[in-house]
Every structure is written in structure tokens, then in C-alpha cells.
Design a binder for these strands. Structure first.
Length: 735
DNA sequence: TAGCCCAAAATTTTT
DNA sequence: TTTTGGGCTA
């Protein structure tokens, strides 16, 4: 079937439907009314979403500005926009496409004033939120040792997810803890208000409130969005659910895409029931199931199915493919996590040597971040390149937050959190007393610290040196504000870095100054993307983007080595080869999930998500013995392994065989890593060459030997001594 | 104000 | 077991 219709002006006629399978086509061309699309892993979900948007526009059913598409990550939104533009061959900037939070922020900036929201609000992230709670606890004289600030943060966040305001929360409070939390909540709200700040949850909560209470605003958006689309609907929480419902209410053209089997964020408020009861919410809904998978082998799909099928309360569906059976799933036991890591390295390198995959095609998945350490140690020692996803986040690094705090203060001087972050960074010789003076004065006059700053002269108790410092700080921020309104964002940042002597500050205070400075420069680089915007707008736009950005969004497109990643973060990605480690009772499923059936169901879904990441090969490892917090424990194989039909499984006796268990000899290339197929080898290094290794630093080549399949180097490193390396595997460069 | 020492915590974390 | 953060001391 080919449909050619008049496309919007300037667009090329594109046949949108010919490359879709029947189910995908049905979903794309479903007419008006609610639409539920069950899109299993690897079934072309994004393709359906983007084609539907393009189709709606091409058919003239909607103007680009009348379509709203909501995702959970910026990455997904970006991809979607790019693909729609490609399909339509025109800019899709008019389409409202973004994360829940970004869309909410946009609505609040435009129309929040109707509900008393200052459009210049800043967005407080996780860290800011914790700091705010700590402050509030200080005000309430709550001892941080007795009461965990984190617990309050969680309670507040959870309440907001459920659209529960501070007063409702207080009313519902029963226990002593809840009453305390209610007090903290109320004060926290006041604190944020005073700082003109909203936290992540507020973006959703306040948008819902705005839409509910301001009829004309609601009407405006309802009229505007003829078609609403939601990605990953199984992960929506209460606030998101209501927000979508409100926006789509009038046209009722709500299309949701998701997979209940991949709902893994229950602990953050996601509610699978939102997708499972869609048909009850919208009895007239059309339902399409995408079950044809384009990613994995049938063996992998069947194995995953036999794990997930044990969950009650799931929509019935089963993935299939015409890619053929492929290799069996490999289940293997190792002695401990050391050997487990060695087995991964061993097998991954063997596959690479065979020639059909690159290291970058291999992902290693685990339940808890702590598991990555054993892996890293082994990979480092073996010189196997890898990238670890997770770990210290870019936007949570001290230096990045410092610079951002300056910028945030520049944009919004009322932000007292940012104020106190940078008032004495770099050191301005302001002691505790002086700052207390300032705070006291501000409180007494009902002013923010920034406002108080212009009245330094009135603070009689202030030492004159401190007064001068404060005055200088005020002038600095004023200067930045001036610059922000007339110059490019990068110039503002340069000005701030120059005036504060931030680089010098880094070198004077820390050992890792170089790395930190590099991060600052990276942030500066990100900011340069806003150079095109008129002065004044760049700063706002940059801060908005940065506060709504996560690390997955900056995930490298072209990885270099093995990928080490948690099961949660791997959702949405795919790899030709997948190793899942720690398939043991107590670790996966995690012991914390044992006491509730829903917890176990979520673990099972997590297993399903992990398994369906694999295209061609899937390895499930479990260790006989595992070190956890100092002591070793013996774990039984995960119950998920028992669910696999024997005929899908290969359990080779020899997976870890031949791998030395506690081999301390550094930098010996694993025996099996030597390619067994003859490769063309040419000598690239010679005695005396200077090289740099990613983790061992600089060194000099003592000897280079050509083997049948590789070039072997003996290198004397400045810092770590003599090592033996295989050129094909070691992360080295010639200098 | 920096550095040191001791104690506590270690499931997952789209914004 | 290891890391991290906070508090105390020099």
C-alpha cells in the first residue's frame, strides 16, 4: 500500500508506510481516538512513533505545532526529532517534543504566572534538593544523625509524585516520622519558594495544578495539542499520568507506547498499572501489539520469554523473529567474582579474536554498581579497554557545580543555595562569623542574601576586610549580570573563570586539578553551543538544558571497548554480545526484593530487559562464592536460570577453564586472547619508541616482537615499571 | 583551614 | 572490604 498525499509546503513526498510491517503500519495509521501500542523490546517502537508523527503531519491531520510527543530522556526526544525531520525533510522544531520535565518547564515558563510562578525560576536537582532539606532540618533543629535527610527527601518526592501537597501530606500523616516529614515538607516548600526554585517533581506537580486550576490555560493547551504521544508509558508515575490525561482530554487523540514487561522504575514511583489499565481508562481505545522483533535471535527471545512469563498481571504477548535460532544461551558458573570477571575478559577476547565482533559490541550487565569493581580490576590488569557507565556524574562534580552555581546566581540572584555555594569559592577570606552576619542581617530584614549584599555598609559588626570581600563579590556578580545581557554565554563563562581565578584555585587546592579543569572546559564547550542565541537568552536556555540533562544523554555514540553498565541503565540499548553477571539469589533477584511480590516481579522484568538487549549472544554467569562487604557468601543460582528451557541453554564446562584464578602477574595477555586465526601483522613499534598507556601513563618500548598473530611489546613505564602488552589489545598510542 | 582519623554504609536512579 | 563523609585537631 502506498499513500501519497500533499505534504506540507516544501516537503518532499515520502512513502512513509512501505517499510513498515502490518502491525507497525496499523499503529502508524490508526486514525483518531485513544491508541495503545504494546511495543516489545526491539520491535521498532521509535520507528512507529516517528512515522506516526510524520504521517499525521504529512496527511494534514495536524500542523507540526499541534503534536505533542513526550519521552523520558532527552536522548530519546532528540533522536525522535531527528528522525521525524529526516522523514519529512523539514524542520520539526514546531512539534512539542521533549521529556515530561522539559515540557512541564516550558508550560510553566509560559503560563505559570497565572498560578503565581515567576517565569525565571531555577530548577533544583537531586543535590540541591538534599541541601535544601538539610537547611530546613537545621531550622527545625532536627539532628541529621537521628533523622536521615535522604529519607525526608524521598518522602517529599514520593508525595509529590502522587500529587500530594504539603498540607494534604500533613493531614494524612499518622506516625511521628510522617508528622516530622510533613513539617520538613512545608518548610522545604517555603524555602524553594523563597529561592524562586522548583525541584524536578515540582515541574510535574505544578503543571498539573496549573492545568487543573486555570481553566483557560488548560483549554489553550487542550485545543492546541490535537495529538498527544507518550513513550515508555509503563514508567509513568501518577503526576505524569494525570498531566497527560489533562492535556489529551479534549481531542482524546492520545497514543501511548510501552511495554509492561519493561517497567523497572517502580521504586521511583512508576506505576505499571497506568499502561495495564489504559483500556479501562479509554474503553474506545484501539490496541496494537508489536511482537515482531528485529534485534535478537529466536533463542534469546524464547529464553527471555520463559523468564517473564511467570509474572502475573502482564499483558499477554510473545516476541518472534525470522532471524533464526542462533547460538544457545550460555549459562556458566565461576568460582567467585574474580573468576567471573576473568571469564568475561577471556570469552570476549576470544570472540573478538574469532573476528566477528569488536570489543565495543560487548556489554557486561550487573545488578549493582558495586559489582563493577571486580571487573574493572581484572580488565585494567589485563589491559582490556572498557567504558564504565555510571559512576561519578558529570553534572554532580564539584567544579561543574561551582561554575553552574555562579551562572545560576547570575540568572537568578534569589537562589540562596547557589549563593552560599560560591560566596566563598574560591576563598574570599570570609569566615563563618562574617557569613553568619550576612545571613542574620538578611533574615532580620526578610531579604535574600543577595539583597542583603547591597547593604553591607549597614552591617556594623562586620570586619572591614570581610565587608570589602562581600562588596567585591557583589560587583563580580553584577558584572556577570551585565555581561549576560549583552554578550555570548561563553564570554560570560570566560569572564567568570578569569575574575575568580578558578583554574588557579583548582591547582592550589586539589591534586586532581587537571581533570577538574578539563571538566570545566567541557562545560564551557557545551555552553558554546548556545552562541547562536541572542545575548541574554543563552544563559537561560543553557541552564534549563543542563538542569534537565542526565548522563545517559551524553552517552558516547561510538564506544571504544567493553561496556560496563547496570541493568537499569542499559534499557533502550542493544549489543551483539551481552554478559549478565551475578545471576544469584540474593543479588539478582536482590534480597531487598524478597519481601514483596511486586518487588520480585520487578526483578524479573529487569532480567527480561537485560536478556533482550542481546542481539546474537547471551551469557548468564553466576558465581559459587561472592565477596560482599568483606565477607564471602555462597549464593545459589538465580531462580531466573531455572526458568530457562534446557534446550535453549549451553552449559559448557570449559568457560572459565584454563583461566588462572588468582593471577597477580600484571599485564600478561590472556593466553586465549591471542587470535587463533592468522592475521596480517606488521611491526608498528620499535625499541626506544615512547608510548602512552591509558592507565599506566608514559613509557618506553624495550622490545618489540612479532608473533604469528600479534605484536608483543615489552614496555618500561615511568610509574608502574615493566609490562608486557599485546598491541592489538592494549590501549596505547605512540608518542 | 587543611588534613587526618574514625565511623557508617553499600539496590536500582529516565529528570 | 572499601569508600566516603563528617567532625575534630593541629
Amino acid at each position: 500500500m502506498t499513500i501519497e498525499t500533499a505534504a506540507p509546503s516544501g516537503a518532499v513526498h515520502v512513502d512513509l508506510l512501505s517499510k513498515l510491517n502490518p502491525e507497525q503500519r496499523a499503529a502508524v495509521t490508526a486514525g483518531d481516538g485513544p491508541l495503545l501500542i504494546f511495543a516489545g523490546a526491539g520491535t521498532g517502537k521509535t520507528r512507529v512513533l516517528t512515522h506516526r508523527i510524520a504521517w499525521l503531519i504529512q496527511q494534514g491531520r495536524a500542523q507540526p505545532g499541534e503534536v505533542l510527543a513526550v519521552t523520558f530522556t532527552n536522548k530519546a526526544a532528540r533522536e525522535m526529532r531527528g528522525r521525524v525531520e529526516q522523514l519529512l525533510n523539514l524542520s520539526a522544531t514546531a512539534v512539542w517534543m521533549g521529556t515530561f520535565h522539559a515540557i512541564a518547564a516550558r508550560i510553566l515558563r509560559r503560563d505559570g504566572s497565572a498560578a503565581g510562578i515567576d517565569r525565571r525560576f531555577v530548577i533544583y536537582d537531586e543535590g540541591d534538593r538534599l541541601n535544601s532539606v538539610k537547611r530546613v532540618m537545621g531550622e527545625l533543629r532536627l539532628d541529621e544523625k537521628r533523622y536521615s535527610p535522604g529519607a525526608f527527601v524521598q518522602a517529599i518526592s514520593h508525595a509529590k509524585d502522587e500529587l500530594q501537597g504539603a498540607s494534604e501530606f500533613a493531614q494524612a500523616a499518622g506516625t511521628h516520622m510522617e508528622e516530622l516529614a510533613a513539617q520538613v515538607y512545608a518548610r522545604y516548600e517555603a524555602f524553594l519558594q523563597g529561592n524562586n526554585a522548583l525541584d524536578f517533581d515540582d515541574l510535574l506537580l505544578r503543571t498539573v495544578r496549573l492545568l487543573r486550576e486555570q481553566g483557560e490555560v488548560l483549554e489553550k493547551y487542550q485545543r492546541r495539542f490535537k495529538y498527544v504521544m507518550v513513550d515508555e508509558y509503563q514508567d509513568t508515575n501518577r503526576a505524569q499520568y494525570v498531566m497527560v490525561q489533562l492535556l489529551a482530554q479534549s481531542h482524546r487523540n492520545l497514543a501511548v507506547v510501552g511495554d509492561d514487561d519493561q517497567s523497572i522504575y517502580q521504586f521511583r514511583g512508576a506505576d505499571v498499572r497506568n499502561i495495564l489499565s489504559f483500556e479501562r481508562d479509554y474503553p474506545e481505545a484501539r490496541v496494537v501489539k508489536l511482537e515482531r522483533n528485529y534485534r535478537s535471535t529466536q533463542t534469546i527471545l524464547d529464553a527471555a520469554y520463559h523468564v517473564i512469563r511467570h509474572n502475573p498481571n502482564r499483558a499477554d504477548k510473545r516476541l518472534w523473529t525470522d532471524r533464526g535460532a542462533g547460538a544457545r544461551v550460555v549459562v556458566a558458573q565461576t568460582y567467585d567474582e574474580q573468576e567471573e570477571a576473568l571469564a568475561v575478559a577471556h570469552e570476549a577476547l576470544r570472540l573478538v579474536a574469532q573476528g566477528d565482533v569488536r570489543l565495543a559490541d560487548v556489554a557486561v550487565l550487573y545488578r549493582t554498581n558495586a559489582q563493577s569493581r571486580a571487573l574493572e580490576e581484572v580488565l585494567l590488569r589485563r589491559g582490556v579497554p572498557y567504558r564504565l557507565i555510571g559512576g561519578p556524574r558529570f553534572y554532580e562534580r564539584r567544579e561543574v557545580r561551582d561554575v553552574l552555581a555562579y551562572l545560576r546566581l547570575t540568572a537568578n540572584p534569589r537562589d540562596s543555595l547557589s549563593f552560599s555555594r560560591v560566596i566563598n569559592v574560591p576563598r574570599r577570606k570570609l569566615g563563618e562569623k562574617s557569613l553568619a552576619q550576612l545571613g542574620f542581617f538578611a533574615d532580620a530584614h526578610g531579604q535574600t542574601p543577595w539583597e542583603a549584599l547591597s547593604r553591607v555598609g549597614e552591617m556594623t559588626e562586620l570586619a572591614s576586610s570581610a565587608a570589602r570581600s562581600l562588596e567585591a563579590f557583589r560587583e563580580l556578580i553584577e558584572e556577570l549580570r551585565q555581561a549576560a545581557s549583552s554578550r555570548r554565554l561563553v564570554e560570560v563563562i570566560d569572564l567568570l573563570l578569569g575574575r575568580t581565578g578558578y583554574e588557579r584555585y583548582l591547582t592550589e587546592t586539589g591534586s586532581d586539578a587537571q581533570e577538574r579543569w578539563a571538566n570545566v572546559l567541557e562545560l564551557r564547550g557545551l555552553a558554546s553551543e548556545y552562541d547562536g542565541l541572542p545575548p541574554g537568552e543563552g544563559l537561560q536556555a543553557f541552564l534549563e538544558e543542563v538542569s534537565l540533562m542526565s548522563d545517559v544523554d551524553t552517552l558516547e555514540e561510538r564506544p571504544q571497548g567493553l561496556t560496563l553498565i547496570t541493568l537499569h541503565m542499559v534499557k533502550g540499548l542493544e549489543f551483539p554480545v551481552v554478559f549478565m553477571l551475578g545471576m544469584e539469589e540474593g543479588l539478582f533477584p536482590h534480597s531487598r526484593s524478597f519481601d514483596s511480590p511486586t518487588g520480585l516481579e520487578e526483578e524479573r522484568r529487569l532480567a527480561y530487559v537485560g536478556m533482550t538487549r542481546a542481539r546474537d549472544r547471551l551469557y548468564l554467569f553466576h558465581a559459587f562464592r561472592r565477596h560482599l562487604w568483606g565477607n564471602a557468601q555462597l549464593n545459589l543460582p538465580s531462580r531466573f536460570l531455572a526458568d530457562l528451557p534446557p534446550d535453549l541453554v549451553d552449559a559448557p564446562a570449559g568457560i572459565p577453564a584454563g583461566v588462572p584464578v588468582s593471577d597477580q602477574a600484571p599485564a600478561q595477555v590472556i593466553e586465549a586472547a591471542r587470535p587463533s586465526i592468522a592475521l596480517k601483522v606488521t611491526q608498528r613499534y620499535h625499541q626506544g619508541d615512547n608510548v602512552e598507556h591509558r592507565s599506566w601513563g608514559r613509557g618506553r618500548v624495550l622490545k618489540s616482537t612479532l608473533t604469528r598473530t600479534d605484536e608483543e611489546l615489552i614496555v618500561k613505564f615511568d610509574k608502574v615499571g615493566v609490562k608486557i602488552l599485546a598491541v592489538s589489545l592494549a590501549p596505547i598510542v605512540k608518542l
